[in-house]
Structures are given as structure tokens and as C-alpha cells.
Nucleic acid binder design. Sequence first.
DNA 1: GTCTATAGAGGGATAGAC
DNA 2: GTCTATCCCTCTATAGAC
Lengths: 202, 202
Amino acid sequence: MTKQEKPENNLSTEEKFKAAARVVFTKKGYAATKTRDIAEEAGLNLALLNYYFRSKENLFEIVMQEKILLLFSLISPIVNDDSTSLEQKIDGISVRYIDMLLQNPDLPLFVLSEIKNNPERFGKNFQVDNIIMRSHFVKQIAERNKTINPVQLILSFIGMLVFPFIAKPVLQGSGVVTEEIFSQLMDERKQLTARWMKMMLD
Amino acid sequence: MTKQEKPENNLSTEEKFKAAARVVFTKKGYAATKTRDIAEEAGLNLALLNYYFRSKENLFEIVMQEKILLLFSLISPIVNDDSTSLEQKIDGISVRYIDMLLQNPDLPLFVLSEIKNNPERFGKNFQVDNIIMRSHFVKQIAERNKTINPVQLILSFIGMLVFPFIAKPVLQGSGVVTEEIFSQLMDERKQLTARWMKMMLD
DNA sequence: GTCTATAGAGGGATAGAC
DNA sequence: GTCTATCCCTCTATAGAC
């Protein structure tokens, strides 16, 4: 992927900017990203960026909203589904979340680090408390195991699912895994995390 | 903590800069950090920063080296100790790593995100492969469970230990935990991660 | 070693022609 | 809507007095 001659897709100018912004912001982070980088990645004129989005910050917010939605839109319906068993939820989350992360490997590290570096930007944007901690899923966990704080179990579950993707740059950089080995590992990991999570409940 | 009147400690000028750099770099990340921020945090003149460290990048490298050392110096002797059992290693790592992270809560997110945003800076800096993956600890795991890839177990173990600290900004920002609740959870978590990790081995 | 002043480059944003 | 040219502020780094 060199810089010249991006494939001429049929996206609107605005969408091309958003696509480019996703790539560059995710790769370098907000502060290190130059609007010129985005324009170049999009193959478009720099002035157009401000014409469409008014500011770098504005464009970033749009991208970030999408990313956060991606993080939660998948998990929210599953954990709040009253009709499924605890085991079904665990299986469903494991498979679908890892699949989503395989499509968006740097999503978690990007979102978490941007929030850490600039917490003010995200005032109450996060409904972790409402969406996850008060979910049907957590209620089922609390019923099943009355001695362990459900937060501990949730942290372990999400940690097992997400951490490999957070550590991915280091794993690859230090030669522990290649791209395809990593994908294989994550694929077999779906079963493992589900199995381990169920074990932890007892 | 306002900006004026930092406590007049007895550190040398150089050490004051390093201390300030640790704070600011960790809080905002490399790209968003201005040398003026560091000088202000240190209560020192901006020109002195370049006198002592030549450049922002140089100072950052020094801080980063320290952080990486902190991440590995604790775990390395434990995982490479031939004289302890697998269970002893699990217990030791759980307790000591969480204690270290309680002292340095934003260490993992800082290091991992800086590496992701600028992988070129870290050419082979990371001996994850040598220090961890070829350790006595991993050999013991492989012996104990011959069906599961040890990488999977290591990822889960480290993930369970580290993820809560990576998610900490979000957990606090969304009101799931306060600072002291978080500390309590992490304290009781030492036992939990050890117990869970042992369960996973079978 | 420590300061003030400033060089010099970079980068976000806009004016104004087309 | 799209372009070129450019404004102007910010930031790193250094020159040079003390």
C-alpha cells in the first residue's frame, strides 16, 4: 500500500475523508495525526477537509462515535437479552466479540488510549454502567455465584477477550506471532474463553 | 493540585525534569505533550530541558526505557526461576504484579499505546519472546497441559491481571468504580486470578 | 547552569479565485 | 465544490547574555 493511486471507489468526498480519518487516527492517535495526513490518505485537497468538517477535532469526534458504537452495539443486545441462559450469553459473546475484533483489531487500544489521554472529551459518553453492569447478564452471574463480585468476573471475561488485541502490536513486534498465527489463535480462543468463563462461575 | 508551588524537593534539576516528564508523558502521551508542559510541571525553565536532554524525543526515550523495565523487571526473575513450582509462580506473579500495577496504574496503557502509535521507535526493544515465551514458567505450563497452546493461557493470565488497569479510565469515567473501590477490587483480585489461572490449567 | 529572546519549522484553518 | 496561496499561532530548539 503505497501513497499514490488509491483505488478510485465510488464514495462521496465526505465518506472518503471519514474513511481516511479512520485509518490515520487509528494508526497514529489524535495528537500525532496531521490534517495533511488525512487529506493525503484520502487523495483529496486539504482545504476540503475544513469545508466538510470545519475542524480536525470535529472529524475526530465523528470517527470516535462510530468506534464506540462498534464496541457496544454488538455486546449490548446480547447481555440484555432476558430469554437466553447464562451459558448461551457466554458462548455468543465469545464468538461474536472475537469475530468483531478480528475485523477491527486496533479498536480497543485506540478507544481506551484516546479516552485516557483526553478524558474531558468523553463526559459520560460511556454507558458502561448502564449497558453492562446493570445488564441481565450481570444479574445472571450474580445469581449463579453469590460470593464473587460480578465485576471481577466481567473484568476477567472482557480481559481475556480483548487483551490479546491490545497486546497485538507488541506480540507481533517481538516476533511471538505472525498475522496469520494470531488469527488462528483468536479463532480457537473463542471456545477457550467461553469454557474458562463457565469454569470461573463455580 | 494547582500549577503553582510544587513542593520543593531535593532532586537535582535533571531528576526534576525526569519526574515531570514521567507525569506528563504518561498522562497525555508523547504527541500531545509539549515541552512547555514538562518545564512547567517541573517548575523549571524551558531552555534547561534542551540543555540537559537535547530534545523532547531523547527525554521520552529515557522515560520509556524506565517504564518498560518496570513492566518486565518484576516478572522476569519469577518466570525464569527453576526452583519454584508452577503454582508458586502463579501466586507470586498475581500478588506482585497487581501490587506493582497499583503503584503504576497507567503503565500498561501508556506503554502499549505508545508502541502502537509509533512501532518504529521500538525495534526489537521487546524481549517478550525471550523473557516470557521461552521461560521456565511456560515450559511448566506446557508440561502440565499438553492440549492447550501455552500462549492462550499466558494471554489469559496477563489479560486478567492487566486489563482492569487498562480499562480503569473508562471504569472511573462511567462511574462503575471509585478510586478506593478499585483498589479494594484489585487487592482481592490477587487471589482470584491465581485461583482461576490454576483452574484453567486442567 | 540558568535565564530571555527568538529563530525556524510545522500545522490548523481560511480567503478568494475558479 | 474544489483548488492555491497564505495567514498565524504554536511548539521545539538554540543563541547568547549573565
